[in-house]
Design a protein around this nucleic acid. Structure first.
Length: 538
RNA sequence: GCGCCUGUAGCUCAAGGGAUAGAGCAUCUGCCUUCUAAGCAGAGGGUUGCCCGUUCGAAUCGGGCCAGGCGUACCA
């Protein structure tokens, strides 16, 4: 049980023994204290207790404090009441013990949370195989992968899926565009269709075409998809399943679905087309599923896909999409609701666009015209780790300014290097200690020798790691973990400058080695969750 | 017009309705015979776009404005 859970229990016990047992129904919030003067954890519960007995939060807090202290919890050093907040100060020994546990790999601080039997499906990237992944997809990929890792760490059973649109009009246009490029290469006049793809990547693909009787659409899509998979693999973003739109079409699932919906009066014909009555579930208007030319819209197979997701029994569905899809959300919510799935359990995360800068210069992009920076180019220029870090250290719903020059810089301005430098320093200390005859793996020092305030600050910060993970789970704010890590790096760098770890004092050295290796455990785990690798040397 | 996102220090951004709104960069001042100075210590910098409201308490929630971005297809 973590210190925080223990505190919550102590508060519950205190309340059970008071005239306010009904207050227990409310959630008791225990959070890491923002400043060390406010202790280690605090609760704002006194604010909820204000009534005739407790006319002010302050009196309620004092009352709570008395009750808590009378139960004499052994891990609490003191409890302070300030401005109605109840602040808990933990005993130093709690932290010292925690450091030993973390460094030996036995601590619940770094280990995954217990499995809770909740299944979550995350669908992300889902880019069409009509062109290479762009920087926008890269951001979605980095965010989705990291969110998946964090949810898994927090005890969810996570499945990652990529839905690919390999049929329909866009693929047809893609095929015609490739065909045009192919014949142009042979010196023949051939126009790219009006809404076709003008990107130069099709020229490269056209060079690979050996036989002009092939299906150009399929050839291009397969070729591009192979590239997408390669890019994602290099980005270390991996999917459990690749779901093809065409499977829902050829498998008859779309037809079946529409029949069911028709039977329920949710699908009808009008103006030569077939419509889904999404307005019955809050969409602003109904949506076409079969066009008047008889072909399906993108929505029809996607509806079948979502029905399939529901059938597979997930507790939560997460769809990570770009801002261009936000108008699409109500209709997907409508289809899941029509199948009795609470739309609240379908979360859409809109990852906003990224604007690339080269120093002050803004890089303009237009996908249709083929003027864009691909994820591939970005990785080649700044590297996968720097790319990923910049993508996730801002909130998903914020527009992101990404400065290529900054991402490449090997200096303080670049947070990626700041983290890497901290990591390398930790590794190097352990290596140096080993070279000086200290058996780093087998230490059992007296941790009470750690008396510096900075040492306690580090331990305190490490104790907050599970809370940070919890915050990410509650808000889907992956950036919170990146910020946590930067703060951790900062207090470590500061400690490093103020105090030497490896000294003549063998006992103190041993205790500090345990501290550093605990730090390294948390640091490594957090980086793994962010999907960022780190070098051993810099 | 309608919908979504954004508006916080000079710049890029944090901050579950909580305490004195925080970081980094930039600017200024210091620090390398000692585990990598890709680092550290310190200083200045704010009417959280504006106006009302809800609340013990609002950057955060609601309403109304203003500004920027995106969307508003029988495209995906």
């Amino acid at each position: 049980m973590t210190a925080k859970q223990k505190i919550r229990d102590v508060i519950k016990k205190a309340l059970a023994d008071t005239p306010y047992p009904e207050k227990l129904k409310e959630e008791i919030l225990v959070l890491p204290a923002a400043r060390e003067e406010f202790g280690d954890f605090y609760t704002n519960f006194a604010f909820k207790m204000v009534d005739s007995q407790n006319p002010s939060p302050q009196t309620a807090a004092l009352y709570l404090k008395e009750k808590i202290l009378s139960s004499a919890p052994d891990f609490i050093e003191k409890v302070e009441v300030k401005n109605g907040f109840v602040n808990f100060f933990l005993k130093r020994g709690v932290y010292l013990r925690m450091l030993s546990e973390i460094s030996s790999g036995k601590s619940e601080i770094v280990n995954p949370f217990p499995a809770m039997g909740k299944k979550v499906l995350i669908e992300f990237v889902s880019s069409n195989p009509t062109g290479p992944l762009t920087v926008a997809h890269g951001r979605q990929a980095a965010f989705g992968e990291s969110l998946a890792r964090i949810l898994k760490h927090a005890g969810f059973e996570v499945t990652k899926e990529y839905y690919l649109n390999d049929g329909g009009r866009q693929i047809k246009l893609l095929g015609e565009s490739l065909r045009a490029r192919y014949f142009r290469l042979k010196g023949e006049e051939c126009a790219i269709p009006d809404e076709g793809y003008e990107g130069e990547y099709l020229i490269d693909i056209a060079k690979e075409v050996k036989d002009e009787n092939i299906s150009f659409g399929k050839f291009a899509a397969d070729y591009i998809m192979a590239g997408i998979k390669k890019d994602l693999a290099e980005f270390n973003v991996n999917f459990d399943r690749w779901v093809k739109e065409s499977d829902f079409l050829t498998g008859g699932m779309v037809e079946e679905l529409l029949k069911i919906l028709e039977g329920r009066g949710l699908v009808y014909s009008s103006e030569g087309a077939t419509w889904f009555k999404s307005s019955a579930y809050g969409d602003e208007k109904d949506r076409v599923v079969i066009k008047s030319d008889g072909s399906y819209t993108y929505l029809a197979p996607d509806m079948a896909y979502h029905r399939d997701k529901i059938d597979r029994g997930y507790d939560m569905l997460v769809n990570i999409v770009g801002p261009d899809h936000h108008g699409y959300i109500p209709r997907i919510k409508a289809i899941v609701e029509s199948f009795g799935f609470n739309p609240e359990r379908l979360k859409f995360i809109i990852v906003q666009l990224t604007t690339l800068y080269r120093g002050k210069e803004k890089l303009s992009m237009s996908t249709r015209k083929g003027q864009f920076v691909s994820l591939r180019q970005l990785m080649d220029e700044v590297g996968p780790d720097a790319s990923k870090f910049f993508f996730i250290f801002r909130k998903a719903e914020s527009h992101l300014d990404f400065d290529l020059e900054l991402a490449k810089k090997k200096s303080v301005e670049n947070p990626v290097y700041y983290l890497q430098y901290a990591y390398v320093r930790m590794k190097h200390i352990l290596k140096f200690a080993g070279e000086n005859g200290i058996d780093v793996m087998n230490l059992n020092p007296d941790m009470a020798l750690l008396k510096e305030p900075e040492e306690l600050s580090i331990a305190r910060k490490l104790a907050f790691f599970p809370d940070t993970v919890e915050s990410v789970v509650n808000t889907f704010g992956v950036h919170l973990l990146a910020e946590y890590l930067l703060e951790l790096a900062k207090i470590f760098h500061s400690y490093y400058h103020k105090h030497r770890v490896v000294t003549e004092n063998r006992e103190l050295t041993a205790a500090r080695i345990v501290l550093v290796s605990a730090l390294l455990q948390v640091f490594s785990k957090a980086l793994e969750l962010l999907n960022i690798s780190l070098p051993d040397e810099m």
